[in-house]
Design a binder for these strands. Sequence first.
RNA 1: CUAAUGACGAACAGCG
Length: 323
Amino acid sequence: AVSWNAMIAAYAKNGYLEDARTLFEAMPCPNLVSWNTMLAAYCDAGDMDQAHVMFKSMPAPDVVSWTTILSAYASKGDLGETKAVFAKMPRKNVVSWTAMLKAYIQAGEIDNARRHFEKMPDRNIVSWNAMVAAYAQHGNLREARALFDSMAKKDSATWTTMVVAYASAGQLKEAMDLFNQMQQRDVVSWTAMVTAYAQDGQLSKARELFDSMPHRNVVSWNAMIAGYARSGLGGGALDFFRGMELEGIAPNEASLAAILFACSHGGIGIERFVAIARDHGDGSEKEEESLNHFLHGVVDALARAGRLSEAEELLHAMPHLPE
RNA sequence: CUAAUGACGAACAGCG
């Protein structure tokens, strides 16, 4: 059953909900983990109706099942529903408490989050990190730092949270100092630091860090693409996009969003975005339809703005456009 | 083997 469950989780994580379901139904006797895995899959897909169906048909939901539901509402930003679920839970552990904490933070209720945090029967490093991030994300650098300093144990998430806190407050030097003090840096901390410089327009510094990274993932590449795009350097954005492809890393929606941004701010044509989108899509009719729909809107907007030559140019660049 | 925290794009980005 363990390997079946691992397979189901893998399918679900990559968005193959149907395949996960098929596998689940083919199992001779699914255990609680199998049920919870499917439950989480529906939650991730945002299908709360199906999630509830699962939950109700489960033999015996445990604290993991409950927390899965709780966390789904939390990430949807539905504080009321999250509170209701939390109140109904027959058993809670530190993970459920932290998920509830996240719901307060998500709703911007930082004071209530802090009260909840103080009431927690157990706190681990994840709960602490969430609380530090809450202050950091809401501009309370001082309180974030105070909590950070009071933590006996820190992991790379703790440090990265503070690095980002300084960076988004515009204090790049402080951010870099903290980054340099880190004992263990993972790909997330590296990418956070790269992003800090890239967003500040310090592209050569960003690039230098990027080049010294031990490992790079799609988010790291996106940070560079977006950095060049927002600095108006569409060509540089495209270079990094190609670099990512050459490394065999698959672009995601954020990569495409960064390229689209480069089209409006970086001096490259919208046809580059369309070509890339076609390249990396599933080639389905639905996708082609929405791309055409999108382009049609762009051409329309150009025409209505009186920019007829650009509209025409775009029409010619897009032979696939319907009349 | 399943649930909670930190990094890229979409909420605290520009224009009006």
